[in-house]
Structures are given as structure tokens and as C-alpha cells.
């Protein structure tokens, strides 16, 4: 039925608009398809094809890293397609992404979160504060870098690191993992 086909094609199909070029070329921030593909391959090889769950832990950051971590989940970066997702409890997590220099008031909470996560647990220090303590190093209010409280496996520097940096850092850090 030509009429039905016409109706379906005009009303029900998603219509393409614009130039027909891929939307990733719209932004100035260059995405990294090769890093994403590498990370996807690593994650799918890591636990027999199962996905990797991330728990974000704020140990006293300026919220800059949190914004970037949030951006990882949006439609542009969409880390769920790589087999990574954020979860609401350390009980469900394989990866802890810790942000910020560890302030004294949150050191206990960080320790408790690490204890609550099932082992083996990959700890990623995200941002300069988490990696080294950054400009807060030596302050009476902070303990310092994350590795002074719990063991750290991957460090992703940057103030803040962009989502691409985080994807690239994860891919680099997990390359040797089994």
C-alpha cells in the first residue's frame, strides 16, 4: 500500500536534520574514539564480558571533578556503551572514583566505603587533589592524597580532568589488568 508506506515514512520514521555530519564534530572538545574502543575492549575482557560498576566518592573536592564525572554519563560521552556505569552503593561497585584531597572529616567515610566495597576493588584517584593533594597539600584540614588513606591503583591528574582524560586514563590504567 503506497499510502500506508508514505504515512509511515513521513510520520513515524525519525527524520534526519542538519548536514548529515556526525554530531561529534559540532563541539570543540575532541573526543577520542580510539581510547573509547580500547576501554570497551579492556572492560569486556576483564570479568568475562560483564560490565564494570563505578562508585563516585567525594572526599572533599571542589565539585569540579564531580561535574566531569557527571558528564561521563551524558549522551555525548555515554560511558554505558563502554560497559561502565555508576551505582549508588559501594556494595555494588568494582571501581571507586575518589575526588578531592581527603579532608579529615571524610577520611573515615572513605575508609568505610573502601571496606564496604567487595574486593578486588579498583581505586581511581580523579583530579590533582586526589592524586597529590594539590594546592591544599599540607593544610591542617586535609589528610592529603587518597593513597594516604586507601591504596590507589590509577591516578588521573587534571584540575579537573576532562571526561576524555578520564576515559583515556582508565584505558591506560586498566591496559595491563586481568
Amino acid at each position: 500500500m503506497p499510502l500506508a508506506r508514505l504515512l509511515r515514512s513521513s510520520a513515524l520514521r525519525p527524520r534526519l536534520v542538519g548536514t548529515g555530519r556526525s554530531p561529534r564534530h559540532l563541539g570543540g572538545d575532541r573526543p577520542a574514539p580510539e581510547d573509547a574502543a580500547a576501554l570497551r575492549a579492556i572492560v569486556s575482557g576483564l570479568y568475562g564480558g560483564r560490565s564494570l560498576r563505578i562508585r563516585a566518592v567525594d572526599a572533599g573536592s571542589t565539585n569540579a571533578e564531580e561535574l566531569e564525572l557527571t558528564a561521563l554519563g551524558n549522551a555525548y560521552y555515554d560511558i554505558e556503551r563502554l560497559g561502565l556505569s555508576f551505582v549508588a552503593s559501594p556494595r555494588h561497585a568494582d571501581v571507586l572514583m575518589v575526588t578531592g584531597p581527603v579532608v579529615r572529616n571524610l577520611a573515615g567515610a572513605l575508609r568505610a566505603t573502601y571496606d564496604a566495597a567487595p574486593s578486588p576493588c579498583i581505586v581511581v584517584a580523579v583530579g590533582d587533589g586526589a592524586c597529590t593533594g594539590s594546592i591544599w597539600k599540607g593544610s591542617y584540614a586535609v589528610v592529603g592524597a587518597v593513597d594516604e588513606v586507601i591504596p590507589v591503583h590509577i591516578r588521573i591528574p587534571g584540575d579537573p580532568p576532562s571526561p576524555d582524560d578520564i576515559i583515556r586514563g582508565l584505558a591506560a590504567g586498566l591496559r595491563g589488568a586481568r
Binding site: S89, P90, R91, A109, A112, D115, A116, S119
Partner: peptide, 10 residues
Amino acid sequence: VRRVRTWDCG
């Protein structure tokens, strides 16, 4: 068996 404090969400 790893014995740690019960997770209490803070």
C-alpha cells in the same frame, strides 16, 4: 572472610 563494619550509608 574479611570482617569490616556494616555498610551504613554514613
